[in-house]
């Protein structure tokens, strides 16, 4: 296992939440890799800082009154129903909201059109739009700098004996999951798109 994968496991190693197999792999690697040992020290040091955080005390009266306060709020403010007869009064407010929206679209338009082309004005890496690719699998392959047809991509998404058993999770877990572009993709996809990506990966055959 390479250093990038090991370092990604170090936070969980520090919290002793790895599986026994993973823990063994990490410890074997740490024995021979000074860079990863340094990385572990930094993570341990970070968690040491976090442990120094002081917890604010909450007065007992807050907890005692919690349920009564909820009940009071429920009686005071039932769920709002839309009042159609307020529309005339809302027109100036709507006009203001539309003006803000138009200004926001104008301000964001450069970023938005750039994003459609697959480039973001974000100060960090490029973000990818699904619209540039034929499929999420196509996009994943692009982010991994692999072509769908290459042996390396096939190896990534199939098991050792050639069966196509890969899931998105395994792809993410095994390699590249500290890849910021991959992370961006995962963050940008909706639940439905993630499910579609998982299904498509499972369908990949040699």
């Amino acid at each position: 296992m390479n250093c990038s994968k090991i370092t990604s496991l170090l936070p969980d190693y520090n919290e002793d939440s790895l599986t026994p197999e993973e823990k063994k792999i990490v410890e074997e690697h740490l024995r021979v890799c000074e860079s990863c040992r340094e990385e572990l020290k930094e993570i341990q040091s970070l968690f040491g800082v976090l442990e120094r955080e002081k917890t604010e005390k909450i007065e007992d009266s807050y907890w005692i009154n919690f349920v009564p306060e909820i009940r009071k709020k429920l009686t005071q403010a039932p769920p709002p129903e839309f009042k159609w007869n307020l529309i005339p009064q809302l027109v100036p407010l709507l006009g203001f909201a539309i003006a803000i929206l138009v200004a926001g679209i104008f301000l964001f338009s450069k970023d938005h059109s750039a994003r459609i082309q697959g480039v973001s004005l974000s100060e960090q890496t490029q973000t990818y739009s699904l619209y540039d690719f034929e499929s999420p699998v196509d996009q994943l392959a692009d982010i991994l700098s692999l072509s769908e047809g290459t042996q390396e991509f096939k190896d990534l998404v199939t098991s050792g004996n050639g069966e196509s058993i890969m899931t998105l999770e395994k792809v993410v877990d095994d390699q590249y999951w500290e890849n910021v572009e991959l992370q961006d993709l995962l963050e940008d996809l909706s639940s439905e798109e993630l499910q579609l990506l998982e299904k498509n990966i499972e369908k990949i055959t040699i």
Binding site: S8, P11, L168, E169, K170, V171, V172, D173, W177, E178, V180, L182, Q183, L186, E187, S191, L194, E198
Partner: peptide, 13 residues
């Protein structure tokens, strides 16, 4: 509503 891999990646980042 995310994958476990995505969650792990977020935590590591």
């Amino acid at each position: 509503g995310k994958s476990q891999g995505g969650v792990k990646s977020n935590y590591f980042q």
